[in-house]
């Protein structure tokens, strides 16, 4: 069971993670730690293994080697739903709403199965909680809309709202801004900044450099499944290998 973590113990510790598909190594011996409440930027060219890392953290994929330690507990053998209950939430690069449901119902799924649901016993309480999350995300007006009628930016927000409804300690946003207009990008970025804080660490995967610079306390850059740089945003951006991986070729 959960060992009470030391005050400065990391929230998430990824330990020598390796994931391959057939002979192709998508993640190669990746080790990194994320602190409680940290805003962490994850960058890297397409195909560098970012989403694969998210899958390994959330439990959608099992790594071939290495471990995922969350809150001091080894969660590597756990299915995604158990990790969700322990506080790992994520959005998907290509949104995956529950299509037969309204926005509110999407959030109700999370609240119905969240770890802390005992405090939200009645359906009315859970609806209230869902509505307050939607209000915070700016989707309250769409609560009763079927997800099929949502615009791209609304879908991204809905996924973040649904992830928030699970009551996470770590929220992973996988390219929530891809394909959005400049004003929408700012909107989602402000949202992510506001969601993070003392209690919620956020890993933000993004290609838009200004957004990453503004958001992140630390940035990690993946290339071909390996960490090529990690540190303060300005330092990582200035790194020659990062520039080569990103701007070169």
């Amino acid at each position: 069971m959960t060992v009470p973590a030391a005050p400065d113990a990391p929230l998430l510790r990824i330990d020598a993670l390796t994931k391959s598909f057939g002979g192709f190594v998508a993640l190669n011996d990746v080790s990194v730690q994320v602190r409680k409440g940290e805003r962490f930027g994850l960058i890297g060219p397409n195909g560098s293994g970012k989403t694969t890392l998210v899958h390994c953290i959330s439990g959608a994929l099992r790594p071939n080697k290495g471990a995922v330690i969350f809150g001091g507990e080894d969660v590597t053998p756990l299915p995604p739903n158990q990790r969700s209950r322990r506080g790992i939430a994520r959005s998907f690069q290509i949104p995956r709403p529950f299509r037969s449901m309204t926005v509110l119902e999407n959030l109700m799924v999370a609240l119905d199965f969240a770890a802390g649901r005992e405090t939200l016993e009645s359906t009315a309480h859970r609806r209230e909680a869902a509505m307050s999350i939607l209000a915070r995300i700016g989707l309250a007006a769409k609560a009763e809309s079927p997800t099929a009628t949502l615009t791209q930016v609304e879908l991204r927000k809905m996924e973040l709202a649904r992830a928030m409804a699970t009551g996470p300690k770590l929220l992973i946003s996988d390219e929530a801004m891809a394909g959005l207009s400049t004003s929408e990008v700012d909107e989602v970025l402000d949202l992510l900044m506001s969601l993070g804080g003392d209690d919620i660490a956020i890993i933000m995967i993004e290609h838009i450099m200004q957004a990453v610079m503004r958001f992140s306390q630390r940035v990690m850059c993946l290339d071909a499944g390996r960490i090529i740089a990690i540190g303060p945003p300005a330092e990582v951006m200035a790194n020659a290998r990062v520039q080569e991986a990103y701007l070169g070729t």
Partner: peptide, 8 residues
């Protein structure tokens, strides 16, 4: 998506 939203 259901799994990642906590549904067993």
């Amino acid at each position: 998506a259901a799994e990642c939203t906590g549904v067993p």
